[in-house]
């Protein structure tokens, strides 16, 4: 019975505040990891605009890397990186993990 009493859930499945997806790690879903070649990157920030998970890290207007806690490895950044630039490549997550 004790297990029935704890963990009171919010009524009707509501999420009672905003921005909670930041606490939810979706990086574990990733099969392919984006890799940045900073020498090719022109900081156009198209990847930042297109990323569905806000996982492109930008500092002082420069693309500096990926938030791998939230990047699901969809590869949109790779596709959207301009053809003349191609600074992003997707590599196998298992290979990336081995380093």
């Amino acid at each position: 019975m004790s297990s029935e009493k704890k963990n009171k859930m919010p009524l009707g499945g509501i999420i009672n505040k905003g921005g909670t997806c930041e606490d939810y790690d979706t990086g574990g879903w990733r099969k392919f990891r984006p890799i940045l070649d900073k020498e090719k990157c022109i900081d156009c920030l198209i990847c930042w605009a297109m990323c569905p998970d806000s996982a492109i890290i930008v500092e002082d207007g420069k693309m500096v890397g990926f938030n791998l806690d939230h990047c699901k490895g969809c590869g949109i950044c790779d596709v959207e990186c301009p053809d003349k630039v191609k600074a992003i490549a997707m590599i196998d997550e298992k290979v990336a993990k081995k380093g």
Binding site: E4, N7, K8, M9, G12, G13, I14, I15, N16, K17, G18, T20
Partner: peptide, 19 residues
């Protein structure tokens, strides 16, 4: 602000149904 109708996973769906 609240979110309604959000996805629930096996760790919580059953608790909602229990309530």
């Amino acid at each position: 602000p609240v979110t309604m109708g959000a996805m629930t996973m096996p760790d919580s769906y059953m608790n909602f149904k229990f309530e």
